[in-house]
Computed example of a mutant assay.
Amino acid sequence: MDSTSLGLIVRRERKAQKLKQAELAAVSGVGIRFIVDLEAGKPTLQLEKVLRVITTLGCDIAITPPTGGA
């Protein structure tokens, strides 16, 4: 997973929910430029805002710790 892959997932889900970028921005409490940058895979976006958009779309992020010895 990288920022480009995450952006594509966000774009796909936004379109599946028939939301325009401006609509998603408004309901997420972020600017439209943030949505544009997120969907484009910009790697330096604020994590809190990214999580807010993902939550607004009804998506989850799962983090799996590495397997093996510690």
Rank of each mutant, 00 (worst) to 15 (best):
I61F: 05
V50T: 07
S5Y: 12
I63A: 07
C59V: 08
T55I: 09
K18A: 15
A25T: 05
R14E: 06
A62K: 13
I35S: 07
A26W: 02
V30N: 04
I63F: 12
D60F: 01
A22I: 11
I61A: 02
A22L: 09
P66W: 06
T4H: 10
D37A: 14
G7K: 08
A16Q: 13
G7E: 03
I35R: 04
L45W: 04
Q21T: 10
F34L: 04
K42I: 02
L47Q: 03
T55H: 13
A40E: 13
T55A: 15
S3T: 08
E13R: 14
G7V: 04
K42T: 09
A40V: 08
E48Q: 13
L8C: 06
A70R: 12
C59F: 11
C59T: 05
S3I: 00
A70V: 10
V53L: 02
K42P: 00
G58R: 10
E39C: 07
R14A: 05
G41T: 09
D37G: 02
K15Q: 14
R52Y: 00
I61R: 06
I35D: 07
G68P: 03
D37Q: 15
L8G: 15
P66K: 13
Q21R: 13
D60T: 12
F34R: 02
G69W: 04
A26E: 15
G58W: 08
I61G: 03
S28Q: 03
P43G: 03
R33A: 15
R14D: 03
L24G: 10
T67G: 13
I54K: 00
I9N: 06
I63Y: 10
T44Y: 08
E13H: 14
T64Y: 06
Q21N: 08
I9K: 14
D37M: 12
Q46E: 13
A62M: 12
T64M: 03
L45E: 02
P65N: 05
V30Y: 05
I9Q: 11
G58P: 09
F34G: 01
L51R: 09
L45M: 05
A70I: 10
D60H: 12
